[in-house]
Each structure stands twice: as structure tokens, then as C-alpha cells.
Amino acid sequence: MTEPKAPEWPLWEVFIRGQHGASHRHVGSLHAPDAEMAIKHARDVYTRRKEGVSIWVVPTTAIAASNPDMKGPLYDPSDSKPYRHPTFFDIPKEIGTM
């Protein structure tokens, strides 16, 4: 392993839209030299059983993520706002479906 190492193919995140009109969903990642090859590889690695009808690939380095340590400050405030859920309100039976 003394010779200079060739650069590793960059990492891409793969998103696939399933059969039934749902959003593209993250399924995993893979290495590829460019976007075109990343889509080709994604097709081989992630859709061998008709898992999808559309593929997105995004360079992993292009993804910005929230800080896991901020979980509390970011998401806990929703805990005190149960009125954002419809079940918070009692609607009389005679009103029917609402």
C-alpha cells in the first residue's frame, strides 16, 4: 500500500420513489464517479425488485443536517401544543364526522 492511492469515488445518497405516488425516500448511499453513474448504480443496488419508479441521487457532502444534540430545544416545544392535533377538541357525536 505504498503507492499513492487513487481518490475514492465520492459518496451519494440515494432517494427512491415507490410505486404509489409517495415522496422520494432515502434508501441508502453508494459510491460513484458522477451523477449519471450514481443513478445507474442506484438502479442495480436499490431497485432489483421493482422497489421504485424514480431515483434521485445527491452528493453526500451537499446534505446539511440538524445537530442531534439540539433534539430537545428543536422538538420538545411541540409537546406543550396538543391543540395542534384534531383529537384535542371534543366534538359532540350528533355533529357527525368532522
Binding site: M1, K5, E8, L11, G28, S29, L30, H31, D44, V45, R48
Partner: peptide, 29 residues
């Protein structure tokens, strides 16, 4: 098809390991 699946399984797992800060090339070496 089965052998191709095994290649796929290897790739899923390499990607999982890579999230821990090691590269696939390093693991291969």
C-alpha cells in the same frame, strides 16, 4: 440473481460501516 443480491448486501453493509468514519476502500484494503 442470488449472487447479485450478495453484492448488493455487501454494498448496503459497507455504506452502514462508512457512516462510522471508515471508507470502503480502507475496509477493502
Amino acid at each position: 440473481a442470488k449472487v447479485q443480491d450478495e453484492a448488493g448486501h455487501g454494498l448496503y453493509l459497507y455504506c452502514a460501516a462508512e457512516t462510522l468514519g471508515v471508507s470502503r476502500d480502507e475496509m477493502t484494503e
